[in-house]
Write a protein that binds this DNA or RNA. Structure first.
Length: 616
RNA sequence: GCCGCCUUAGCUCAGCUGGUUAGAGCAACUGUUUUGUAAACAGUAGGUCCCCGGUUCGAAUCCGGGAGGCGGCUCCA
């Protein structure tokens, strides 16, 4: 039989899942099996063993048992059973999870979660209707319900390794019992497996939590709480520089900064409709002076609508554009918090445009340009998803308005020359949107920026403007965040750069290493620092009583863009030779020498032009 | 929230099955050294072994509870 490499790898991983079950069944005969699918880079198997919890200490034992089975090169025999027969098999062998799957198969021809209504099932089922027969694979004395494909025998499964075991709800539902999910990675050859593990190790090296500590960017405190990171001076420079650029990009297009308080009466969210949606994610704030009940804001749009509604608006005033980088608070489930990617204090570079229907395209166009500029500056590739509505009737707002808006969105995207794709059914219930996917240095895609149209809040808040004919009209809101959440953006960006920030973002752009302690040198270094300050370059001097080598090392470890050793030679000549960080050192750069003021003005230039690669 | 693992000095980590005053490297501090492109030398200080409770003659180590961290809880016989 001829199989492509991919098909074969798939069959191998599938077979490994099967062998995992076989090995577990040998070790714990009472084990109940759920599903054992192939996933990215490997496979897993959901297993429930009464009164036994598998830990990573058991991996060796399970792997050994699997290797026995693999060594025996048992043939995989495929057989078919009629569904009812299969259900009887599941009952006889006491496999309740398999029984549930089989019952679903019998009923609807699919194993997709059984609590969907009939209509939904109809659209999901692969072939309309119940299946007649199901397939089984047997190796040695172990038989498992499995669609396959499998390899010919247990000896042909390549290299694998268990990485972790984790709890997983049966069929992903919180109300179901929790099973143990054994995750394995698997590849055709040992070399490929080793390569994969090596890549994992590299990713670990650039983990933003590790770098956050090493580069002194942010900290957490048990006393403050989970999911509430604190930013150090260095981390704050990153936040503020990113925010400043994100704001600048929009202020070019007439956005004005506003400010709102961080707590509000719950009435605001009752009106906006967020109360129901955010419900248990709201942090409650109780007044001790009055009987007022407040909440910490989980988003900013309702507040911004209050500013819009503070006075009558004419069609001539539109678009009204508000911009605010501010923190919102959401009480995420504690188990979902982690690093900067999932936090409870979320800072958004948020903006809202209140505009007429016919202004949507232009406004979106401007925001697209801003997004492109933003992601160019942080050196990440962007593509966008146009998320439209589908035929479902869960969407709010006039259908004609949706049509026109979706067209305008698309026109703006096409004009922006962004790489895009369209997807129906991905829209928010309140309007269509553009989701930006940014690709990082490890080829992972992240959804960061969004532009969303909103037809619902304007009417809920009874926003209006006077049209040319004097009639009251309802504006449309365009929500936009370029960075999304600054915390999440940083979690991605720190890993994207591995902590090697471009000059415009580097918390410390230049460090002077003073060779020795003398009044003349002190004076010279002071002068350099003063000039740097004048140019707005973030510079420091290392005057500690340490060897030059050691001071260079500590600068390198902090991944500083420019390190400049200043001693007698420099004092005499007034000329500096910077040591340039490897990743953007240009050939010949290290030897180049500059009068100190030139060096500093060049660095200042890189800051304002936000160029990635040095061009001194 | 649920399941599993983890928490020892500022950081990274040793500490075997419960048994003397809990260790190392780096960082800090003091002194010597005044240094030329990735770690000078010597010394000093630093610990409620995450917290609370229990078992025990004895707990960093075992048990229970709590806090914090990490991996998962979508990928579908």
């Amino acid at each position: 039989m001829h199989m492509s490499n991919n098909d074969n790898l798939y069959a191998m991983r599938h077979s490994l899942a099967h062998i995992t079950a076989a090995a577990v069944a040998r070790l714990w005969p009472e084990a109940k099996f759920g599903v054992g699918p192939v996933v990215k880079d490997g496979f897993y198997y959901d297993i429930d063993i009464p009164n036994v919890t598998i830990s990573s200490d058991d991996f060796a034992k399970i792997e050994a048992e699997m290797n026995k089975i693999i060594g025996e090169k048992q043939a995989f025999d495929k057989s078919e059973k009629q569904v009812d027969e299969a259900i009887k098999w599941a009952k006889d062998t006491k496999q309740p999870y398999k029984e549930e799957l089989l019952n679903d198969l019998k009923r609807s021809g699919t194993t997709v979660a059984s609590d969907l209504n009939a209509e939904e099932l109809g659209t999901i089922a692969e072939d309309d209707g119940a299946v007649e027969n199901v397939s089984f694979y047997t190796n040695g004395d172990f038989t498992d319900l499995c669609r396959g494909p499998h390899v010919a025998n247990t000896g042909e499964v390549g290299a694998f390794k268990f990485l972790r075991v984790a709890g997983a709800y049966w069929r992903g539902k919180e109300t179901n019992s929790q099973m143990q999910r054994l995750y394995g990675v698997a590849f055709s050859t040992k070399e490929e497996l080793a390569h994969y593990l090596e890549l994992q190790e590299q990713a670990k090296q650039r983990d933003h939590r590790k770098l956050g500590k090493e580069l002194d960017l942010f900290v957490t405190s048990d006393l403050v709480g989970s999911g509430l990171p604190l930013f150090t001076p260095r981390g704050t420079v990153l936040r503020e520089e990113l925010t400043r650029y994100s704001n600048d990009l929009r202020q070019q297009y007439g956005f004005e900064k506003v400010w709102v308080p961080h707590i509000t009466k719950t009435a605001l969210y009752e009106k906006s409709g967020h109360q129901a949606k955010f419900g248990d994610e709201l942090f409650l704030v109780k007044s001790q002076e009055t009987s007022d009940e407040f909440v910490l804001k989980p988003m900013n749009c309702p507040h911004h609508t209050r500013i819009y509604a503070s006075k009558p608006r004419s069609y001539r005033d539109l678009p009204v554009r508000y911009l605010e980088t501010t923190t919102v608070y959401r009480d995420e489930k504690t188990g979902e918090l982690g690093g900067l990617s999932r936090v409870r204090s979320i800072t958004q570079d948020d903006s809202h445009v209140f505009c007429r229907e016919d202004q949507i395209e232009t406004e979106i166009g401007n925001l697209l340009v801003a997004a492109v500029d933003m992601y160019k500056a942080v050196d990440m590739n962007l593509r966008v998803r146009l998320s439209y509505r589908d035929e479902n009737d869960t969407y709010l707002g006039d259908e004609k308005l949706w049509q026109s808006a979706q067209e305008q969105l698309k026109n703006a995207v096409v004009a922006s020359k962004l790489d895009y794709f369209e997807e129906a059914g991905e829209a928010a219930f309140y309007g269509p949107k553009i989701d930006f996917m940014a690709t990082d240095a490890l080829s992972r895609e992240h959804q960061l920026a969004t532009v969303q149209l909103d037809f619902v809040q304007p009417s809920r808040f009874e926003l209006e403007y006077a049209a040319e004919d004097g009639n009251k009209q309802t504006p449309v809101i365009i929500h936009c965040a370029l960075l999304g959440s600054i915390e999440r953006f940083l979690s991605v960006y720190i890993e994207h750069t591995g902590g090697k920030f471009p000059v415009w973002l580097a918390p410390e752009q230049m460090r002077i290493i003073q060779v020795k302690d003398s009044p003349q040198l002190n004076e010279f270094v002071d002068k350099i620092l003063a000039v740097a300050k004048e140019y707005g370059v973030r510079a420091t001097a290392d005057r500690t009583n340490e060897s030059v080598s050691k001071k260079i090392r500590s600068g390198e470890v902090m991944k500083l863009p420019y390190i400049v050793v200043v001693g007698e030679k420099e004092l005499q000549s007034g000329v500096l030779t910077p040591r340039v960080r490897q990743d953007f050192a240009v050939h010949g750069r290290l030897e180049a020498a500059y009068p100190y003021e030139n060096l500093i003005s060049s660095i200042a230039n890189e800051t304002t032009s936000r160029v990635q690669k040095s061009s001194l």
